[in-house]
């Protein structure tokens, strides 16, 4: 059985990577040739990233990334390109993700509840519901 191929992220025009020359190109010329970046530096908007990868999935196996290219373009404050770096699939690492999650309120519907139909929504106490504020859920005071 043949694996299914699928491209994700940025697509290079007719397949080859355009030449971005540090010192000559600036944000405008990069924008014009590549379009807006896939993502920018988290804290520095002067670093642009163009990320693209191809994934292969075969029957029941988990899809594998078979090709990845990340182009990192750094600009100076004036907006001219200072450096262009490339990252390929080779630079990738296997990272074990932390499985702790910041808690969010809200509970799963129990099996019986779903089977026998009453869709429970979020009980208020999940949110510290009882508003003990005067006039809160207690309703307008009688003397008003």
């Amino acid at each position: 059985c043949t694996p299914v191929l699928r491209n994700h992220g940025f697509i290079y025009v007719d397949g080859e990577v355009p030449e971005i020359v540090p010192g000559e190109d600036n944000q405008a010329s990069v924008l014009e040739r590549l379009g807006s970046p896939s993502t920018q530096g988290v804290f520095e908007s002067t670093t642009w990233y163009y990320m693209s990868d191809t994934r292969q999935s075969l029957a029941y196996q988990r899809p594998q990334t078979s090709y990845r290219r990340i182009m990192e373009i750094q600009f100076d404050d004036a907006g001219t390109v200072t450096a262009v770096n490339e990252y390929g699939i080779g630079d990738g690492r296997r990272v074990t993700l932390v499985d702790r999650e910041t808690p969010t309120p809200g509970r799963e519907m129990s099996v019986w509840e779903q089977l026998f139909g009453n869709i429970g929504n979020l009980p208020s106490e999940q949110f510290g519901g009882e508003q003990n504020l005067p006039g809160g859920a207690g309703g307008p005071r009688r003397d008003e």
Binding site: G41, V42, M51, Y87, V98
Partner: peptide
């Protein structure tokens, strides 16, 4: 309250991608 985790997840992503300078900065 999700900001610290978001930061860590970005570090995990960039480490997995191999883009170390972004990972260290975050």
């Amino acid at each position: 309250t999700h900001v610290p985790e978001a930061l860590h997840r970005i570090v995990e992503s960039y480490v997995a991608l191999g883009v170390d300078n972004e990972a260290t900065q975050v």
